[in-house]
Amino acid sequence: MVSARVIRNLKKEFRNSALAKIGLVLVISIILVATFAPFVATHDPTAQQLDQSQLPPVGFSETAERTSSQMVDGEIQTVTETVEIEPDPDHVFGTDSLGRDMFSRIVYGARTSLAVGVLGTLLAAAVGVPVGLLAGYHRGTVDDALMRVADVSLAFPSLVLAVALIGLWGRAAVDIPDPFVVAGLAPEMPESFVLPITVVIVVGLVNWVWFARVARGEALSLRGQEYVKASRALGASDNAIILRHVLPNAITPIIVLGTVQVAAIILLESSLSFLGFSGTTLSWGFDIAQGRDYVSSGQWWISSIPGFAIMLSVIGINLLGDWLRDALDPGIEGEGGAA
């Protein structure tokens, strides 16, 4: 399915585009960080060290007002003094209000974001693509029904829909044992990774419509192609035609949509966590939410750093999507006219 030409185009576009390079570097870094989180993280991201709470990131110092009671001349006085809080090189990104290492939290948060993003997208595609292809290929009542459902879902804000569904189903989460920790390679890290399964299902069900629409549009145009007619003339069944001719030729826009959806779902997951609807406490969105109260008192990093992580990963994935779109699209469509 991936011809030499596709690879050639991918390489060419990659060489010509600095943005594609940035995107790829970002995405690969995030994948590596998420996969090898136990080795990248410097601390257990859930371990609380209250005596080291609210340390600023390395390179920044923080002034805080500390009030203490002191015995001065036999009287107890309340003294307010301004204390300089120096960053601890052991916590590069500082710590949060409970003294958890921000760097390690970001590293583990990447796992959640990526897992929810990828699994949610796969689920959305698994539902949306077959429905869209069948509707577009067969047209008629199925198609009409699908399009009405799609219109309604698109008219409904996805976040509201997701919140409603989670409210309905609860916040289930699955504990997946971390193989590295189980194997004893990183003993001090959490033993399992918490996958917020409800969130995955919900974001998948909220976003399948996008895949259905794109797949339907492709199927609609591909069904008129003469090679589809030729295949019917050869005696192929409709399902065989959809699998052999329609899906492979519709895959390019679906892949491109997929990358965009991963980014969109990461954002959606963060929003859900921020609102407290996630099943895990190791998430960028969750950290933003818990850091929100401290922004006004000067502890900006607790919510800014995870915000920055979300931004970088979304930008990276979108750049990757742009690259795929540029590289895959003209390869198929532009060939005909040029010769």
Partner: peptide, 13 residues
């Protein structure tokens, strides 16, 4: 059957 358009009659993949 043989079709008219040599471009759309063959599956590009």
């Amino acid at each position: 059957i043989v079709f008219q358009d040599p471009f759309s009659s063959l599956d590009p993949r």
